[in-house]
């Protein structure tokens, strides 16, 4: 036990030292460049942590079947994309999903609840591939960077991810690992810095 305690103290000390070093004032220009790239990557990673989270990914399927839950199981009862991303003719998204979460039934809801278009199928893609799709005007609804920023930071259905309501059993749904504010900043910064996909 005593030996373990020593290790813990040691680890904490080293961590503290690293934090102290990290917070020292940056002096050299080349360090700034690297830092910018690092920040850009941070923005990209934060953004992607959100886009690849189940709250987002479940409605960007590659097989036209919406997913549900943190285990991303296929939507029960055979619901699928249908002709206009809204499900089938008579039984569609709005048969059950309304413009806000339902706390009695646990059915989630937000304005214009629907699947993302098939061209925005992200399921199974790498982060780089998702980013490429996002930026490709041929498939993103001809959206410019500004329009993408607006969509990603202001659209109610996108922002639903941080107010996802409760499951049928009354428990809160999980939210993306990055806060809404940090996500918005990350998106704005990433696009402001030219929307560079890191591996490119």
């Amino acid at each position: 036990m005593k030996i373990k305690s020593i290790y813990i103290v040691l680890i904490l000390s080293i961590t503290g030292l690293l934090f102290a070093l990290a917070n020292t004032t940056k002096t050299a220009t080349y360090e700034l460049v690297d830092d910018q790239a690092q920040n850009a990557n941070d923005d990209y990673n934060k953004m992607m942590d959100v886009l690849t989270h189940q709250r987002c990914m479940n409605c960007h399927p590659s097989d036209n079947i919406p997913k549900q839950g943190d285990d991303s199981h296929p939507h029960y009862f055979g619901m699928a994309r249908g002709k206009n991303d809204h499900g089938f003719e008579a039984t569609n998204c709005n048969t059950c999903h309304q413009s806000e979460n339902n706390l009695n039934s646990g059915v989630p809801g937000a304005p214009h609840w629907a699947l993302a278009p098939a061209s925005m199928a992200w399921e199974g893609l790498t982060r780089e591939e998702i980013a490429e799709r996002l930026l490709d005007k041929n498939i993103n609804g001809n959206r410019s960077h500004d329009e993408l920023v607006k969509h990603m930071t202001e659209d109610d259905l996108v922002l639903w991810a941080w107010q996802p309501g409760v499951h049928a059993n009354g428990e809160q749904r999980t939210v993306p690992p990055v806060s809404k504010e940090d996500f918005k900043k990350a998106v704005e910064n990433w696009f402001a810095n030219g929307a560079v996909i890191p591996s490119k």
């Binding site: 008579a90 709005n94 048969t95 059950c96 309304q98």
Partner: peptide, 13 residues
């Protein structure tokens, strides 16, 4: 005219 599952439809709507 649209099918709705009324157990999950708040009356305010």
């Amino acid at each position: 005219g649209e099918a709705v599952r009324s157990c999950s439809y708040p009356v305010k709507f």
